[in-house]
C-alpha cells in the first residue's frame, strides 16, 4: 500500500544546507578581509586621508599627485628594470638548468635540492646574506683584494645606478631554482614517444629542443611568467633587507613606496592610490590566467 510522503524528510533538507553553512565563515572572511578591504582602500585613494583615514573626497587628486612624484616614477622605473630582468634571467637559468638536469645526470637527486633550497628561506634572510656578501668593505670585493686581485671593484650595492641589479641578483638566487623545478616537471611530462618520433624523423639535438621540446613547455613558460611577475610586483622584504630602498631612493619599488608613504610619511591617500595601481597590475596578469586555469579543469 502506498502512502505518499510529500514532505521531504528533514535530514535530507538539512543536508542540503550544511555545506553552505560550513563554507560561509571562510567566504565571509574572504569577502570582508579581501574584497571589502580592497573596496575600502580604493575608496581611501579618492579621499584626502593623511595619517588616519579621512572621508573627504578629493576625486583623482591622489592619482594626479602620485604620477607627479619623482619617487613614484623612480619606483615604477625600478620595478620595470627589476621585473623584466628578474623574469628573463630566472626563466633562462631555470630552463637551462632543467634541460641540463634532464640529461640523465648522475647526482641529480643531490643537485636538485641545492638549486631549490633558497626558496625555503625568508627574503629577509636572503637579503641579509647578500647584503654583507656584496658589501665592498667585507664581502666579495675585499675577498678578491685579499686574493691578490687588487683592482677588482664590485660596489654595486653602494652605487645608485647599480644597486637595483643587486636586488635582481638576490631575487634570482632565491627563485630561479623554483623555476627550474617547474620546467623540469614540464619536461618530465612530455610524452617520450613524441621525442622518439622526432629523433626517427632525424631531428638534431638542437632542433629537437628548439622545435619540439620548448614549444611543448608553453604551459610551464606561462606559469613561470605569471608567478614571477606577481612575485616581482609584490617584492618588498628583499629590498628592505638588502638595501632598505637605498642608496637614497635608488632601489625603491612600488611596494616600499606604498609602505613609506602610508605609514611613515602620513600620505595615506597617496599610499592607497599606489596600492590600487599595484593591485590593478597584478589583476591584469592573474585574472586571465586563473580564469583559463579553472576553465581547463571542468
Amino acid at each position: 500500500m502506498a502512502h505518499h510522503s510529500t514532505e521531504v524528510d528533514f535530514k535530507t533538507k538539512l543536508q542540503d544546507w550544511i555545506p553552505k553553512l560550513v563554507l560561509s565563515p571562510s567566504v565571509a572572511m574572504v569577502l570582508v578581509f579581501v574584497y571589502g578591504f580592497i573596496i575600502f582602500t580604493v575608496y581611501l585613494s579618492f579621499t584626502d586621508s593623511r595619517m588616519l583615514p579621512s572621508y573627504e573626497m578629493v576625486g583623482f587628486a591622489n592619482y594626479d599627485r602620485l604620477w607627479g612624484l619623482r619617487a613614484w616614477w623612480t619606483a615604477i622605473d625600478n620595478l620595470f628594470v627589476f621585473a623584466s630582468l628578474y623574469i628573463v634571467i630566472c626563466t633562462i637559468i631555470g630552463l637551462t638548468l632543467a634541460i641540463l638536469l634532464d640529461q640523465k645526470i648522475r647526482g641529480e637527486g643531490g643537485l636538485r635540492p641545492i638549486y631549490l633550497y633558497p626558496m625555503a628561506l625568508s627574503f629577509i634572510v636572503t637579503g641579509t646574506a647578500w647584503k654583507w656578501f656584496l658589501d665592498p668593505g667585507i664581502g666579495l670585493e675585499n675577498t678578491m683584494h685579499l686574493w691578490g686581485w687588487e683592482s677588482f671593484k664590485f660596489n654595486w650595492i653602494k652605487d645608485r645606478d647599480y644597486a637595483i641589479y643587486t636586488v635582481v641578483l638576490a631575487a634570482v638566487w632565491q627563485t630561479s631554482g623554483f623555476v627550474m623545478a617547474m620546467f623540469l616537471a614540464g619536461l618530465r611530462g612530455i610524452d617520450n614517444e613524441i621525442l622518439k618520433a622526432a629523433q626517427i624523423d632525424g631531428a638534431s639535438n638542437w632542433s629537437l629542443y628548439r622545435r619540439i621540446v620548448i614549444p611543448l613547455l608553453r604551459p610551464a613558460f606561462l606559469s613561470a611568467f605569471v608567478i614571477l611577475s606577481h612575485l616581482a610586483i609584490k617584492s618588498y622584504d628583499l629590498v628592505i633587507a638588502l638595501t632598505g630602498g637605498g642608496p637614497g631612493r635608488a632601489t625603491e619599488l612600488p611596494a616600499t613606496f606604498m609602505y613609506s608613504y602610508t605609514f611613515t610619511r602620513n600620505q595615506m591617500g597617496t599610499g592607497a592610490a599606489s596600492a590600487v595601481i599595484m593591485l590593478t597590475t597584478i589583476a591584469a596578469i592573474m585574472i586571465p590566467y586563473l580564469y583559463a586555469e579553472l576553465k581547463e579543469k571542468r
Binding site: F37, I38, L44, K234, Y259, V276, L279, I282
Partner: peptide, 13 residues
C-alpha cells in the same frame, strides 16, 4: 585570487 593580491591593498583597512 585572494592568494595573489599585493597585500599593500589591505594594509590600511
Amino acid at each position: 585570487f585572494s592568494c595573489f593580491i599585493p597585500f599593500q591593498i589591505v594594509l590600511i583597512p
